[in-house]
Each structure stands twice: as structure tokens, then as C-alpha cells.
Design a protein around this nucleic acid. Structure first.
Lengths: 334, 334
DNA sequence: CTGTTAGCGCATTCAG
DNA sequence: CTGAATGCGCTAACAG
């Protein structure tokens, strides 16, 4: 079955290609009503649908955006993708999602690939390690918005959580409940992955602000696979922590595993708050107190910004940072 | 900053476009080593990258596939998407994921949209309600593979779980542990959504095969929002069930909610098995026994089939059904 | 070994 | 109101 083109339709309707083209683009200003009907009929009869590729090539617009997440394993990433997809879908944009796996090389490849595909813009969770590439994006005025992670010195609009506040909310909650020996476990601290840095800062700040002393032994930065080990060590201290902040969902799950394996009670043996509102938080036993990121709102905002950049050829000032407020979901783990 | 094209490169290198094109396609069979170097230099200097769109238009191949899931809310859908993406990514294919939201109209729109975009093929969780569209796909020999749901009378390759076996495994497990009053809760039974039908069949069959009588009051087909209500009714029966099969992840979560709200013990008050291996199954208290679908293998298989169809122009016989074995994850909820 | 010539399917002037 | 001509960026014969 041969693919039918605009030429076929034109022939079938007895008009010229350009007339059909005008019809397709709804510019029937001066088109004969009868002509219109004939074209309509021909299209239906031939079951014709225009080739977006050809159109895109000509119009230099693909109605597609790319999103590159740093690590798809986080709930947050998947929530963001969904939000973006929903928003774009309503506006007739398609999205191609890519997972950079926290690898700057992959990130670079994806960005280049997406550009080669002529996507109209990209939303990225930047690894932070491709500064010169980011510079090129901004120099060429390529519609881009960053999300989740802050890249300093590159003026690209960025949608972020107020990460310090996230930690602050958690610590304050612990304090209000009388916990004083508050620890935190984070994935490894890398300068480019700003959420962890900021959350750690928030933790430290809130601890000291409240007149508690900062104990280095209460802070762990470890790979997910080593979380349980470190937790064991912490709990074996002479003064073990009585409360624990899990810096993200993956860490939280590991902590829960450890608690379960060792038949420890939450919050009796250890109170827990996790940043990221995991799906099972409210059904868990006990229900988990979490700090939720407004992922849907953030994804929507990023998409909004991007589509706006895409349609407004006029370059507005860039580099604005949008901070979103975390929200504490009080449940029973503290 | 003007987009630079192959023409610019050719000019810059002092050769013709076609020579550059040949270089790009690695057909330097008889190309002068010096020419090659000049082109290479020009490309680097101009920071040129080819426009995939134009190439695709000419080659009638976009290196992109579409996947349409029926309902993105199920873990299974997201797992499948990931598996497909991973597989395709390695083979330089991109994937555009769409969520039909269980709406046949959306499904139709997406299929048409993706075809207009000239994607090389599609993988779909069929709603089942667009038979004539499916027929067209097969008639036009458009690379397509179905997954999760069976559509009868349409000869398209399909990747499925052995759903009857899934229920069977669950029921047998209950029986082995001495449970006799085994109920099940399913989302509404719709003829097109075959997994539910098959799982229900599996349930009924296994119950009767084991000499138990089928009690209609132990079978509920309800919207997610009504699961808790129905569960309440079941547990208020004179002979309430002592074991419960949750037909999918969404139902399972509702059941867990109810148990928690009413401070009921699992498995003491009600033993539970869920189909779909939710992420938190092993950390839950108690750890949840589930029937896992080999989502990764299934997604990979679907992608394999599709890419094979795409490369083999030769149409092989179609309509093969690939059944995958569910696996019981024995934990502590039964 | 390299350049010329045609399109791919569509949109856009610009004359009729 | 309509059609012929042109080009988007690239590939693919086919001659030189």
C-alpha cells in the first residue's frame, strides 16, 4: 500500500497542490465552497493524512520537545515527565523522554541527538558537567529549561525545589516532637548535584539555628548500596540518633529495608522523614511522614516556560530561577 | 545564529554536497584521503550536525517508534516503557510514549499522529475498541506489536502474561497455607481488557478444580474508588473471606488502605496476594506476597519484535502470541 | 574518486 | 480564487 501524498489528493480533487495545502492550513479565505467540498471528499476517500516530517522540514518546527532526566529511577523524575507530557499533550506537542543515567556523556549525546531531530526545545535535569554545551545552548538561543538542579554561571531558566526549606521542615518536625539526635543520610555529595548540597546545608543550618551541635557522625554520604551498612554503624554509636532524614526516595527505601530486617520499630527506635513523597507513604505501616515536592506543578511550570520560549521568538531575559515550596506530609513515622 | 547545512560544509571544504553526504554515511570507499580530512575539518570548524528530519524524509525512516499505553498509572506500564526505551536506546532508536488513558478516541488520535510523524512502528496496549483501525494497520503492513491485552480477530503479534496462571499461582499459594475462603477484587470487567477477564477465569477455574465452591459474593468487579466499600461489605458477610487476591496494583493499594484504616492485620485478619510486583512489596510491613509480571522481559520482547519487523521488510506470518510466565514472589502477606 | 541532477512531501510566494 | 515554480536539507543514481 503506497503512501498517499498531497499530490494524490490534489489530482483526485482536480485542483492544485497549493490549493489543498491552503485547505489543510485552514486558510479558506477565498476558496470556493465547492472546491472546499471536493477537497474534503478527496481526503476522506483517500484516507489521506499529511506527512508531518515534510511539513516540519519546511516550517522548521516539529511540535516535539525533548526531556532528559538525570536518573529515571527517582519517583520525582517520573512524576515530572508525566506532568510535562500531560501539559504538552493538550497543546499538541509530543515529548521524547531520555534517561541520561547521571552520565554527562550520555547527556551530551542526547542533547545533540534531539537537536539533530530538530525538536523545538528541551527540558533537562542537568548533570552539570557539560558547561560548554550549556553555553552553546544559550548562545544559539535554543529553547531550554533546566529543572531540579542548578547550574551556576549559565543563564538558563531553572525550576527548582526550595531544598533548604525541605530539610528545614523535616528537622523542625523532628524537634517539635522532641527528637534531638537527628541524623541524615544522603547519596554521595557531588558539587553539580545541587539538591543534595542544598538539602545538606538546610539540615546543618537548621540544626545549629536550634542550638544543637552538628555531629559529623550523624551525617552520611553514601551510595545507595551502602546505606544499610552505614545505618548500622550509626545505630551502633554510643549515642545513636533517634531521628533520621532520608535525603531522597532511594535512600528512604534502603532505610526501611534495614529497619525491617532488624525488626526495628518506626518511630520508636528511629523516627524517619523522607524527602520525596513516595507512592506508598500513606499505606505504609506506619504511614510515612514525607516532604513532598510539588512535582506536578514543577513539571507544568517547566513545560509552560519552554513552550512560551518556543512560541515567543523574542528572547526574554533568561536565567530566572523558580523555586517551589516543599510541603510536609505529616503522617506517623515521627 | 543561522543553522548550518550540508551545503555550507561542502562549500567550506571545497567539495560537492554529495561528497559530504557520502562522508557522513561512511561510504568512503574511493574517497581521497585528503578530501576526507578536509571535510572532517570543515565539519568540526562549522560545528555541523546533520538534520535528521531531512534525512528521514528522504529515507522514509525516522529511527523512532511510538508506544501507546492504555493507562500510565499502572506500574506495569511504566516498567514496560522503561524496558522498551532501554532496548531501543542501545540501538539508536528513539521512543515517543503516549498515554491513551483507556480512551479509544485518544488511542486513535495517537496512532494517527504517530503515523503522521512517520514513526517506524508502534507498540500498543490496545484498548481493543478500534478494531477497524487495527485492521488498517495490518492491511498496510505497518509494523505494530500489541502488548498486555489480546485483541481477537486481528492478526497482530502480541506479548502477554499468562494471566490465568497468575491467578492460579496465587490461589494455590493460599490453599497451601490452608486458606479456603478466597475472594478476589478486580476492576470492572470489560470484554476488551483481557487481563482482567483471564485472571478472573484463572481464579474461578482454580477454585473449582480444588473442590471449593464458587461464591459470587467473593468476587467483586469495581472501580478503584469503590474498592474499600466493597471490601467492607465482603468482610461483613456471615462467612467473610480469609484471603484476598488483588487483581492489580491499584486495587492492592486500596485494599491496603482499608486494612490500615481499620487496623486489620495481614495476614491474620486477611491474607493478601496482589498481581503486579509493586515497588514497595518487600519493604512493606508485612512484606507483600505478589505475582510479578516479567515486565522487563516482556517490554524487551515487544521491542525486539518491532525492530525486527521494521528492518525485515519481508512480512513474516503475523498474529503470534507470546505468553510470559508470571512468577510468585513469596513474602509474608499470606 | 567527485560533481551534477533529481527528487522526498509539503508550504509559500507570485503571477495569472 | 488557483496553479506553477521554488526550496527546506539531504540522499541517491549516474555521469564524468
Amino acid at each position: 500500500m503506497k503512501k498517499i501524498t498531497i499530490t494524490d489528493v490534489a489530482k483526485h480533487a482536480g485542483v492544485s497542490k497549493s490549493t489543498v495545502s491552503q485547505y489543510l492550513n485552514e486558510r479558506y479565505d477565498y476558496m470556493g465552497g465547492e472546491t472546499k467540498a471536493r477537497i474534503e471528499a478527496a481526503i476522506k476517500e483517500l484516507n489521506y493524512s499529511p506527512n508531518f516530517l515534510a511539513r516540519s522540514l519546511k516550517q522548521k518546527k516539529t511540535n516535539t520537545i525533548g526531556v532528559i532526566v538525570a536518573n529515571i529511577l527517582h519517583v520525582f523524575s517520573t512524576q515530572i515527565i508525566r506532568a510535562i507530557q500531560d501539559y504538552c499533550s493538550e497543546r499538541n506537542f509530543h515529548v521524547i523522554a531520555c534517561n541520561a543515567d547521571d552520565d554527562p556523556r550520555k547527556e551530551k549525546q542526547f542533547i545533540e541527538m534531539l537537536q539533530a531531530k530538530q525538536v523545538d526545545g528541551i527540558i533537562v535535569f542537568p548533570t552539570g558537567a557539560n558547561k560548554s554545551l550549556y553555553q552553546t545552548l544559550i548562545m544559539t538561543n535554543y529553547p531550554t529549561v533546566f529543572i531540579d538542579r542548578m547550574v551556576s554561571g549559565v543563564g538558563i531558566d531553572t525550576v527548582l525545589l526550595d531544598n533548604e526549606k525541605a530539610s528545614k521542615l523535616a528537622i523542625q518536625t523532628f524537634l517539635m516532637q522532641g527528637y534531638q539526635r537527628i541524623a541524615m543520610i544522603s547519596p554521595p555529595l557531588l558539587p553539580n548535584i545541587t539538591p543534595r548540597m542544598e538539602r545538606t546545608t538546610g539540615y546543618k543550618q537548621t540544626i545549629t539555628e536550634n542550638g544543637l551541635s552538628l555531629r559529623p557522625e550523624y551525617i552520611a554520604n553514601v551510595e545507595t548500596t551502602n546505606v544499610r551498612d552505614h545505618l548500622r554503624k550509626m545505630l551502633a554509636l554510643r549515642e545513636p540518633p533517634d531521628a533520621m532524614l532520608a535525603l531522597n526516595d532511594l535512600v528512604l527505601v534502603e532505610i526501611l529495608h534495614y529497619m525491617k530486617e532488624n525488626q526495628l520499630q518506626i518511630p520508636k527506635d528511629l523516627a524517619i522523614i523522607g524527602i520525596d513523597d513516595v507512592t506508598f507513604a500513606s499505606v505504609y505501616n506506619p504511614a510515612l511522614t514525607t516532604i513532598a515536592q510539588p512535582a506536578f506543578a514543577m513539571g507544568k511550570k517547566a513545560a509552560e516556560l519552554l513552550l512560551e520560549k518556543i512560541s515567543n521568538i523574542t528572547k526574554r531575559r533568561e536565567g530566572i530561577v523558580y523555586r517551589f515550596e516543599p510541603k510536609i506530609m505529616r503522617r506517623d513515622s515521627v
